[in-house]
Amino acid sequence: MPERHGPARGGRVTPTAKGAATRNRIVEGAAAEIRDRGAAGTTLDDIRARTSTSKGQIFHYFPGGKEELLLAVAAHEAGQVLDDQQPYLSDLGTWQAWQDWRDAVVRRYERQGVHCPLGVLMTELGRATPAAQALTGQLIERWQAALRAGVVRMQESGRADSRLDADRTAAAMVAGIQGGVAILMSTGAITHLEAALDTSLMLLRTGPGESF
C-alpha cells in the first residue's frame, strides 16, 4: 500500500519521511534503468521490478504515469549535472577553485561520453513542451547564478577585471559548455569542451596583477 502522508500544512499534504524515501527510490531506480535501457526501452514494469515497488505505489507518487515519472527523473538528472561540479561550483573564490571546477566539468562529460541521460529524457518528453522548457530553464538559471557569484567574488577580490559583466560572462560560460557538450555527443571528441572552458577562464583571468 502507498505510504500515508502527514497532516496538511497550509492546504497542502506533506509526505512522510518514509513516503519521500520511497518516491526518491523510484526516481533513482528509474534513472538507473533509463541509463541502461534508454527512455523508450524502459517500461513501468521495469522500474517497478528494479525498485521493488508496486504499480499502485508508482501511480500514487506519479499519477500522470510514465510521463510524470520521466519529468521527475529529468529533474533528478538536471540536479546531478550541478552536483557533479561540487564542491567547486559553490566556492569559486580562487583561481585554483576555478581550475578544479573546470576539471570536474571535463571529468563529468568524459564519463558520460556520447550518452547523455538528461538529453535522452528531454527528447522523450519533447524539448518544446512547457514542462521540459521550464526544467531546462531552471537548470541554466541555477548554473549561471553559481558562475555569476564566482565571477563577482573574483572581481571583488581584485583578481578579475571589474569591467566584466558578471551575468554575461557566466552566460557565455554556460553556452560554451553546452556547445562543447553538443559536439561531444555528436563526435565523441571532448576537445571543444576543453577549449571553451580554457578560453573562458583565460578571458576571466585579466584582472590587475594577473597573467595568463
Rank of each mutant, 00 (worst) to 15 (best):
P7G: 10
G10C: 06
G11C: 08
R12S: 07
A17C: 04
K18Y: 09
K18D: 15
K18W: 09
A20D: 14
A21E: 13
A21I: 04
T22S: 15
R23Y: 12
R25K: 12
A30Q: 10
A31V: 02
I34N: 12
D36R: 14
A39T: 08
A40C: 06
A40V: 11
G41S: 11
D45E: 15
D45G: 12
D46W: 02
I47E: 08
R50H: 09
S52I: 00
S54C: 01
G56V: 03
I58M: 15
H60S: 15
F62Q: 11
P63S: 03
G64D: 07
G64R: 03
E67S: 10
E68N: 06
L71G: 05
A72E: 15
A74M: 03
H76L: 04
H76N: 13
H76T: 00
V81K: 11
V81N: 09
L82A: 01
D83P: 00
D83T: 02
D84E: 12
Q85I: 02
Q86I: 00
P87G: 09
Y88C: 01
L89A: 05
L89M: 01
D91K: 07
D91E: 14
D91L: 02
W95L: 08
W95T: 00
Q96S: 12
W98S: 08
W98R: 07
W98L: 13
W101T: 01
R102K: 14
D103V: 00
V105Y: 00
R107F: 03
R107G: 13
R108I: 00
Y109A: 04
Y109N: 05
Y109G: 03
G113S: 10
C116M: 03
P117Q: 07
P117V: 02
G119A: 05
T123H: 11
E124W: 07
L125R: 09
L125N: 06
A128G: 10
T129D: 07
P130E: 02
A132P: 06
